[in-house]
Amino acid sequence: MSDILLDVEDLRVRFPGLSGYTEAVRGLSFTLGRERLGIVGESGSGKSMTGRAILDLVPPPGEVTAKRMAFMGLDLLSMPHRERRALRGARMSMVMQDPKYSLNPVMTVGEQIAETWRIHNPGEAGQARERALAMLDAVRIRDPKHVYDLYPHEVSGGMGQRVMIAMVLVADPDLIIADEPTSALDVTVSMQVLAILDDLVSQRGLGLIFISHDLDLVRSFCDRVIVMYGGAVMETLNARDLDHAQHAYTKGLLNCLPRLDRVDANLPVFTRDPEWLK
């Protein structure tokens, strides 16, 4: 694979606490090409912190360490924060969870898209509006000129998330992380948003890290899946092999899903093995 976007080995994120450190991510390793990698796990499994660590956005006093973390041949670990910031938005970016809170309430949505462009193309700031309008069109918003001047509270959740995608993609990144991009949306709306994301990722040949707690969604959307629990990787497998998962944790998770083709009196209660965290 010559086209490795991201190469991570033994990534750890830890937070100092009153009684020593709490590890949010413990020893995560993976490589990502121009493909869709799902990271699934329960809340608190460290999946969101993984995304933040890649973007250099772990909130203080959190500490990030790794044996290797390289993005398209660039060593992220030795790179100063300033250069990491220049990468953010331009070459790697993130779709956030809930557009209701993730969009700046006092800026028009068009301005917010244009801002990403302007930050990374200061020489071509004049094009920002044009680019933003084109991006709004690309996320299938019917009347971009009208929507450009709306404030976030004036757009629906689905449209807000499309604006978010436009904002993330306007500066043409190679890697995007989608952190539970649809969990705040209705099912039908979330399908539309995913379809748009799907198209754009394929068209542009992006690498996508799709963080979710939804196994079914990840199975249908991603090529490969990392299953995390308590900050550690339980298992990495191809999405289509998810039904044949080896690890007890993955099996347990799958068993907890209600299914139409099976009659369960009660969904099984999931027992967690402390051994998994070793």
Partner: peptide
């Protein structure tokens, strides 16, 4: 502490911009 601040950082906005253009504008 709001989520849109993280969004601004994700976009690559400098801390100056995050603080004065995003946060303070909302506190106005």
């Amino acid at each position: 502490s709001q989520a849109y601040i993280l969004t601004a950082r994700v976009k690559g906005a400098s801390e100056t911009r995050v603080i004065w253009r995003h946060a303070l504008r909302n506190a106005a």
